[in-house]
Design a protein around this nucleic acid. Structure first.
Lengths: 155, 155
DNA sequence: GTACCCCCTGAAGTAACTTGAGGTTCAAGC
DNA sequence: GCTTGAACCTCAAGTTACTTCAGGGGGTAC
């Protein structure tokens, strides 16, 4: 009933206008009603649906997954357990990514630490650490443990 | 020395061939030497460089960042402290992403848990949990309490 | 009426590759 | 010497999820 135009809808949902048009184009949002001049008008239902979509996207669901969820939300014949399963599947993926990212964090932290410890400004081509990146694994030796204290700037 | 062709280089570095050609195209790898028949030949130096590039990419550096690092590794006038700073900057970004992902994990886990708790198979459009995704925040306590009964088949 | 912002469409750009089509080269077996 | 099949070549287009651009129209306030 509010009769929002695209900019207002964008503001309310934290989206931006071209993205909304894009969602319409790919059929994630219904084709919006138009004013006399051709400008899109949206209702509260649209705010709700777009909010749903954006939240799902923030959750890392792909457009196609969001499409399933949106359909599910509107199809009275489908069980919401479906959504739960989709979410659960996604949870597993997120946890895997989380583990990877943690490993990555450790590696980079080690890299920075060993730079601080043993490369105090030498030229790039002679840098031992950089050279190590060209080798199979970056596994930083345990000797680092002892040298970590030399690092002034790193936490 | 070894005279690898693209497939062998790919295998050794865990890349695939089109990606190697792509790296050449964007100037991340030098233009490879060619055999009489036009097929690319690579040396150990190329193995090393590509390994470096792949490792950096695994670290989540963008192509442009990798480009800087590669240049740095080969430019005798630049200090490797540069690389350390780039890595440190990147570490901060990774940590931020890590925090976000952790929050995400908690949210999805909560979603799945509350699905398990209160929606044992009701139809999608009436699912309280899905409905909540259309609201501003997913934090659900009081609303859930009051409307739990609306979900037809919910226990 | 005119200033100015918001809106429109269609096309192209973005990252970092991947995939496909259609043709060539290489190495091995006969 | 010939054939076969894998590996290679180039160029073009596809992928995801948008963003940016160009060139114009609509809405409203003064």
């Amino acid at each position: 009933m509010s009769g929002l135009r695209i900019g207002a809808l964008a503001k309310r949902t934290g989206t931006n206008a071209p993205t909304i048009r894009y969602y319409e184009e790919i059929g994630l949002l219904r084709s919006a009603d138009r004013q006399a001049g051709g400008q899109r008008v949206y209702s509260d239902a649209d705010v709700k649906r777009l909010t749903f979509i954006r939240r799902c996207r923030e959750f890392g669901f792909s457009i196609e997954q969001v499409r399933s969820l949106v359909e599910l939300v509107q199809d009275p014949t489908q069980s919401c357990v479906h959504a739960r399963d989709l979410a659960h599947e996604h949870l597993i993926a997120v946890r895997a990514k989380l583990a990877e990212l943690k490993a990555l964090e450790r590696s980079i932290a080690a890299f920075v630490a060993s730079c601080d410890a043993s490369c105090a400004g030498g030229p790039g081509p002679e840098c031992v650490i950089l050279d190590d990146l060209s080798k199979r694994r970056i596994e930083v030796p345990s000797t680092l443990e002892g040298r970590r204290s030399t690092c002034g700037t790193c936490s």
